[in-house]
């Protein structure tokens, strides 16, 4: 059981954060940057002792393909699924009638992608081994604990990223690593 990588996309369809824990180079190399940590401007420095890369694949074809796949499947989930309107829950949750069916994960024979979309259109995606159980709670923690605390509440970092800008601040990177490496699924 392994966790391969963590991706974040904003509502402008840009990849704003990538963290890969694979030991080999990414499958679809981009034309502009490669996977070494220190040689390109878009790559971010890692905390000492960490493996993998940060923000090395943001302009990659694989980032764009992943976004495309997530976007299309999310649209299918919205269009096709209906959440049954339960009168009991509408008392506690007045927005229940507006809730759309949302994509939780998709899997292939080789990996599983866990997905979460926030209210502002931010996509959180974790690629893991197909056997890993539901990581929805982890994604929600990543959003509520790490992203909100280190990016939203950080006056020095952008919230609406211009093109090709990524989340680079160390506290965010550290927070993500702490959360993910602590999981039992992380080999």
């Amino acid at each position: 059981m392994t966790i391969y990588s963590f991706w974040m996309f904003d509502r402008h369809c840009n990849c704003i954060y990538t963290r890969e824990w694979t030991r080999s180079s990414p499958l679809v190399p981009s034309h502009s940057s490669h996977s070494s940590v220190s040689s390109t401007s878009s790559a971010t420095t890692l905390p000492a002792g960490a493996i993998g890369t940060v923000n090395a694949s943001n302009q990659n074809d694989s980032a764009k393909l992943l976004f495309g796949a997530l976007f299309s499947l999310r649209n299918i989930a919205n269009k096709l699924g209906t959440l049954p309107f339960n009168e009991d829950t509408s008392v506690t949750d007045p927005l229940a009638i507006h809730r759309k069916n949302s994509l939780k994960s998709f899997a292939t024979g080789k990996y599983r992608a866990h997905f979460m979309e926030t209210a502002l259109g931010l996509y959180f995606c974790i690629l893991s081994d197909p056997n890993v159980a539901d990581l929805q709670i982890v994604l929600k923690d990543l959003y509520a604990d790490v992203y909100v605390n280190h990016v939203v509440k950080n006056s020095a970092s952008d919230v609406d990223f211009p093109a090709e800008e990524v989340i680079g601040n160390e506290s965010f990177v550290r927070g993500v690593d702490q959360l993910i490496t602590a999981l039992p699924a992380f080999a």
Binding site: A69, A77, L80, G81, L83, S102, F106, T108, G109
Partner: peptide
């Protein structure tokens, strides 16, 4: 024969 293509999809409703 679906070893590497999309195999399954999970959402709240289906």
């Amino acid at each position: 024969c679906n070893t590497s293509g999309l195999k399954s999809l999970e959402t709240d409703a289906f």
